[in-house]
């Protein structure tokens, strides 16, 4: 049953340029969908259109059957979309805990309960011991974890990860892969835009390949990697 998130025929145009052309995808609970493609393929644009951060010219987005495609981004968040940003966007002047408190307050309006939820999420991503550090002082790997913690603290049904593995060193990458797997096992639907093939292959149940705004292949990770059109899109023809 792949019906937690459905995007149907999503099209995004910027002026005369069509960045995403009628792309569809579907995702069920506990499933991980990898969205890959060469630079400029429209992955982040599609991602933004689904989450409400970019306007969509045509198409439908549903969350558990409910049409959310016309709602503003914050309303989609409240209904169960948690997202990270490709370039991490912590609230720099706040501490790590306070950063996570902001989304935690969505489900827990009272400070004490919100703090408990935020600390639990920080424990999950391995940042609990840094909770009173100013967010501006975190290194890259920890900023990524904080970004993930903020997305998890909205208690989402669908988790959108935008290149959360990029730039991590091998141990940090392994930890992040294990973390994402745990989240899916807990029943979260995960849509991830990712360039790190190790993460895509190890994690994805299903892969969608975009090139020039269109789906050129989809299926199980190993099948997709062997697909000639995919190789062509990445490496070009000779």
């Amino acid at each position: 049953m792949r019906d937690v998130l459905r995007a149907e025929e999503v099209t995004v145009r910027f002026g005369g340029v069509t960045a995403v052309k009628a792309v569809s995808l579907a995702l069920g609970a506990g499933e991980i969908l990898g969205l890959i493609g060469p630079n400029g393929a429209g992955k982040t644009t599609l991602f933004n259109a689904i989450t409400g951060f970019a306007p969509m010219q045509a198409g439908r987005v549903t969350l558990e059957g409910r049409d959310v495609g016309t709602l503003p981004a914050f309303a989609r968040t409240r209904l169960g979309f948690g997202r990270t940003f490709q370039t991490e966007r912590p609230f720099e002047e706040l501490t790590v805990l306070e950063n996570v408190l902001v989304p935690a307050f969505l489900t827990e309006p009272r400070r004490r309960e919100a703090e408990r939820l935020a600390l639990a999420v920080l424990g999950e991503v391995g940042l609990a011991d840094r909770h009173d550090q100013p967010a501006a002082d975190l290194n890259l790997a920890r900023r990524r974890r904080l970004e993930l913690a903020k997305a998890l603290a909205v208690t989402p049904k669908v988790l959108f990860l935008d290149e959360i593995m990029a730039g991590l060193n091998p141990p940090a990458l392994r930890e992040m892969i294990a973390l994402v797997r745990r989240l899916a096992e807990r029943g979260l639907a995960v849509l991830m835009v990712e360039h790190i093939m190790q993460a895509v292959v190890e994690l994805s149940d299903h892969v969608v390949v975009l090139a020039s705004g269109e789906t050129i292949a989809e299926g199980a990770p190993c099948d997709v990697m062997a697909n000639e059109r995919v190789i062509e899109a990445y490496l070009g023809t000779d």
Partner: peptide, 21 residues
């Protein structure tokens, strides 16, 4: 809560939206 919403919006409006504000 209100105080944290104020600060979140000050720091980054898009990130605040991603936190449901």
């Amino acid at each position: 809560r209100f105080g944290y919403q104020l600060r979140a919006v000050r720091e980054d409006e898009e990130a605040a939206m991603a936190a449901g504000l």
